[in-house]
Design a protein around this nucleic acid. Sequence first.
DNA 1: TTGTTTTCTCAAAGCGGTTTGAAATCGGGC
DNA 2: GCCCGATTTCAAACCGCTTTGAGAAAACAA
Lengths: 346, 346
Amino acid sequence: MNLKELSQTLGLSQTTVSRALNGYPEVNEATRQKVLAAAAEHNYSPNTRAKSLATGRANAIGHVIPIANSHEIVNPIFGDFIAGAGETYAANNYEMILSVTENAGEADVYRSLKTRGVVDGVVVHGPKMNDKRIPLLKELGLPFVVHGRASGITTDYSWLDVNNRSAFRRATDFLLDLGHRRIALLNGLETMDFAHRRRRGFDDAMQARDIHIDPVLLRSEEMTESYGYQAAREMLSYPTPPTAFLVSSIISALGVRRAIEERGLQMGRDISVITHDDTLSYLANGAELPIFTATRSSVREAGRALSQMLLSMIESANSTPQHKLLEVELMVGQSTGPCPATAQPA
Amino acid sequence: MNLKELSQTLGLSQTTVSRALNGYPEVNEATRQKVLAAAAEHNYSPNTRAKSLATGRANAIGHVIPIANSHEIVNPIFGDFIAGAGETYAANNYEMILSVTENAGEADVYRSLKTRGVVDGVVVHGPKMNDKRIPLLKELGLPFVVHGRASGITTDYSWLDVNNRSAFRRATDFLLDLGHRRIALLNGLETMDFAHRRRRGFDDAMQARDIHIDPVLLRSEEMTESYGYQAAREMLSYPTPPTAFLVSSIISALGVRRAIEERGLQMGRDISVITHDDTLSYLANGAELPIFTATRSSVREAGRALSQMLLSMIESANSTPQHKLLEVELMVGQSTGPCPATAQPA
DNA sequence: TTGTTTTCTCAAAGCGGTTTGAAATCGGGC
DNA sequence: GCCCGATTTCAAACCGCTTTGAGAAAACAA
């Protein structure tokens, strides 16, 4: 059933039917009701492609997720972010379009989404430092919001980020207050902007107390479980091992715990661990009693908020960049305790 | 730049330009080259909406992911599946459309995708027993492939599944061969078809050896880390605890390991664990030496294969249902060993 | 009654492509 | 030189919707 048929059934013109359905004021209320009833009865809803063509709006948002190559990691936070954004889209009759692409082809994907008119805007995932997608999207005139920020980009653009720097500074301070001095940082890839900021937060805290940062305790990799395990295992075998770990992902933190327990040590007593926790739905960090002390921020909530930002920018045709910085909670759990080494001399 | 402008630039008709670009034979090769060059130079690519409207094909596949409510779990395998499917779509110029929906509204989403002409086909995720989406999609005449199967549906339909029943039968047999008799099954929700089949594989093996299945060792829940932990912790405190766990997800298996180690036991020596492993990229089960003995099957590969199936069905307009049953490897890792209880009497 | 508003409805022109059916051009055979 | 078929190109119709600009009908005022 299309508009033409529906209007014929009703004995009205296409215009009137279209207006009635789209809530224009210049149509008699009685007529409108008749139209709505008929539309419901015949299960009519307008063809999206035709509608888009006529209105010039795609009613769709693109999410481009880069994957270095086919063996590469899919960021585990992705599912929850998408779930949050999807809620917004569903509520506003937008479609979510996902493009998986190799890193190299990314620019082409954005360009193509724009010239083919597939989307009204895009979400930029996983910003790197000096991310070249930002100038590209500006040049294309395609509305976008970045999930995170891109250090090194000096022009203004829209983003939603969590305060990674302050989060890791606080987490580090928390460990320092417990007497820890040899603190290992298992960070994400420091080409990624979020990891860069976390590193700075860590540095801030350490430098503020004039504590030497031992480079052998710093790692920066893709945040898998086995990365956490391998790194922790190796570090724990050092002559002077770290007494605490600060980890960028709960998944890697699981690996750290594995290494700790494998060594017969107890997390929270012998070794302290703080992790960042994106509150992934399937990896809840305990309910009342968190397993890990964690800097916590809901990535699903971020998805919801970011997509709302983007939609409102698009619908108001407002091109002045918007920003939203989410603060992070520091949840104290069972994985941290006073530094054993400093406790002894007392 | 649109087709009209491009053809004017070239001094040709729209028809000729369109034909040249789409590879029709009735256009002079020299003309075609000129057109292609001009298109590249002006960065032209046809507007998808207009093209879809004219051809009647959306060049898009829908993925509808149901989420019970906004606090509910996003299936962690989702990201990897999508990554696999996305590769296929990118290679074939299809768009992937994701709809996140509450369980209740699901039928409407499919109906709406169809009537609005948004997609050419859909992937059905997470089939339940007697899944009502299958008859619905048949009725709608929307091509689809189910990731998994739906026990109870007697009509034929397209699916791609892993052999869950045989996988869990083999895993159970493996444990039985090691002397284990009290085997706990931490399954997914048994309303989900895959969990139902795994349960049957487990039952098959146990019954074939006339071993009593103790209902207190059977669980069926959403597969989170804490589910694995809680269930294992509780069961290990039984007067006669299980000597082995068969777990439906590596994420829950991580929780099981946590419970085991918390109790001061060693996985693989005191307690055996076998898990299903979807080879999620960020949760690799060790490389050369798998942590867990596991029934293993790549969900990303499944995404690739399933989407290819769907596209070929759509492009060949072939409506005869296709099926693909992937076999599962049983990888022996460090988490299994002979049953200690039966070892002693020897 | 007539003229002026206001309210409602309509035909037709896009939106940007594809595709049909006809016309123009070309080369070759007689 | 003429005719025919093959090759290329074109104008126009169409996909299903929105929206403009205008006309018809109804309501109101003078």
